[in-house]
């Protein structure tokens, strides 16, 4: 009985976070005010992080909060503040070609969901068969052994991106 209740609780939590994620994603896209979009994006990121926790990916969930909410979202807000005139009505931006775009996206959504429903995925019995309770140590060991080269390449990518962003965003200097 308690197992059944806990399973139901798990389902309710999943539906709650799925709802939060989808609704805030829709607000990001359809909001007229760009600041509302940016703040709504935060709820999307937190919802996805919660879903990661439910999928036994604790390390990735923490990384999601650190990188997306702590880094990318702040960067986006800086972009909003630097490129819009906050006082004027420039922040309100319109949409166009809504009907053809909606048809295109509806076809895309139908195709994706159809494929996902038709395909025979794994049965939930095999779920979490080998994943340990915490994944951090496994990820750390894999990063230092199997994925050492991608790890180092990723650090070079980040360095180059940092230098490139600083170069592009800097004011042109008169020679």
């Amino acid at each position: 009985m308690t197992l059944l209740a806990s399973l139901e609780l798990f389902d309710i939590i999943f539906y709650f976070f799925a709802f939060v994620t989808i609704v805030s994603a829709a607000v990001v896209v359809f909001s007229r005010n760009i600041v509302h979009s940016a703040f709504s994006l935060m709820f999307t990121f937190f919802g996805v992080a919660a879903l990661y926790v439910m999928l036994n990916a604790d390390f990735i969930a923490v990384t999601q909060v650190l990188v997306y909410v702590g880094g990318i979202l702040v960067l986006l807000l800086f972009g909003v503040m630097l490129t819009t005139k906050v006082i004027s009505v420039e922040m309100k931006t319109g949409t166009l070609q809504t009907l053809p775009a909606s048809i295109l996206v509806a076809v895309l959504a139908g195709t994706l969901c159809g494929i996902f429903w038709i395909t025979d995925w794994l049965t939930p019995v095999a779920r979490n068969a080998e994943l340990p309770a915490t994944t951090s140590s496994g990820i750390g060991r894999a990063l230092m052994t199997t994925y050492l080269l991608p790890f180092e390449v990723a650090s070079v990518v980040l360095l180059v991106a940092m230098l490139g962003a600083a170069m592009i965003a800097r004011r042109e200097r008169k020679r």
């Binding site: 997306y68 986006l76 994943l131 990820i139 990518v157 592009i168």
Partner: peptide, 25 residues
């Protein structure tokens, strides 16, 4: 998670790295 294989989490880790670089640039 459903395969019980942490390789997918490594992929997500690297996707996040590239996403951070993409956001900055």
């Amino acid at each position: 998670s459903f395969l019980g294989d942490p390789t997918g989490q490594m992929l997500v880790f690297f996707v996040m790295t590239v996403a951070a670089a993409e956001a900055a640039v």
